[in-house]
């Protein structure tokens, strides 16, 4: 799981063009959205949905599902581990 979390952090940094950020800057359990965590917003959800589909073959059809899955990197990684098709 730790490998998947680190891989996911690198993909998030790349997909969202978080230039200068390192995986160490992202706390596994910190919220991805809002000022308390990574500071992502609704625009970034689109990037994360594409990231999940392209890299792990997971399609999220419902925005409410995204809200649940994108709570933190740890939650996202667990969802990927349980549902990935590639």
């Amino acid at each position: 799981m730790e490998n998947l979390i680190n891989e996911l952090k690198l993909k998030i940094i790349d997909s969202l063009n978080l230039d200068g950020m390192t995986p160490e800057d992202i706390d596994n359990d910190a919220p991805l959205f809002g000022d308390d965590g990574l500071g992502l917003d609704s625009i970034d959800v689109l990037e994360l949905i594409v990231l999940m589909e392209r890299n792990y073959g997971i399609r999220l059809d419902s925005p409410s599902k995204g809200k649940e899955v994108f709570r933190s990197v740890a939650v996202m990684a667990q969802y990927i581990a349980d549902n990935r098709t590639k």
Binding site: N17, L18, D25, G39
Partner: peptide, 16 residues
Amino acid sequence: TAIYRELVGDYPKFFK
């Protein structure tokens, strides 16, 4: 990024 880390450090939106 180095300037950000020295001056601020707690505003992750900077990276976006």
